[in-house]
């Protein structure tokens, strides 16, 4: 199945291997963070940074692999990478806000006061406080 990969120059082959391996390791670190951190807010950190970068590195390795001598560079891979980096912070922000809104407790010893008015949307201060009362 991978017979032609012998045709790659050694340093390029090594670079791709390095990217794939380090990408997998970094993504695994992100997932370990997700599994072992004690509260929701701390769990958010692993996936948003590490997993995004890990998958990004894997995609870069695959781009080089396909770009050099195989089917040619696939534009969709570029698109997936850009899309992942653009959306990861947005989904992290949305999840953090949902957790704040649901008043999910943060671990003991957390500095600072998260809840005051921060779980409400900008510009919807009045309407959302009335719906809070109903709950």
């Amino acid at each position: 199945m991978m017979g032609e990969s012998m045709a790659l120059p050694f340093w390029l082959d090594a670079l791709i291997a390095l990217l794939l391996l380090s990408g997998a390791l970094v993504a695994l670190l992100g997932s370990i963070g997700l599994a072992r951190m004690p509260d929701v807010y701390m769990r958010l950190h692993g996936p948003t940074k590490a997993s995004t970068l890990g998958v990004g590195a894997t995609l870069l390795g695959s781009m080089i692999w396909f770009g050099v001598g195989h089917e040619g560079l696939s534009a969709q891979e570029v698109l997936i990478t850009v899309f992942l980096f653009a959306t990861a912070p947005v989904s992290a922000h949305m999840m953090a806000r949902a957790a704040l809104h649901r008043r999910v407790a943060c671990r003991e010893g957390t500095h600072g006061e998260p809840w005051d008015e921060m779980d409400r949307l900008p510009g919807y201060a009045e309407s959302s406080s009335s719906s809070d009362n109903q709950r």
Binding site: Y41, L44, H45, T48, K49, T52, F85, A86, A88, P89, V90, A92, H93, A96, R97, A99, L100, P114, E117, M118, D119, R120, L121, P122, G123, Y124, A125
Partner: peptide
């Protein structure tokens, strides 16, 4: 907010009204 979420150990969690 996106830049903050992607860099050193910080995630932006909310914008005040």
């Amino acid at each position: 907010a996106s830049s903050i979420s992607l860099t050193p150990g910080t995630v932006s969690a909310g914008l005040s009204p």
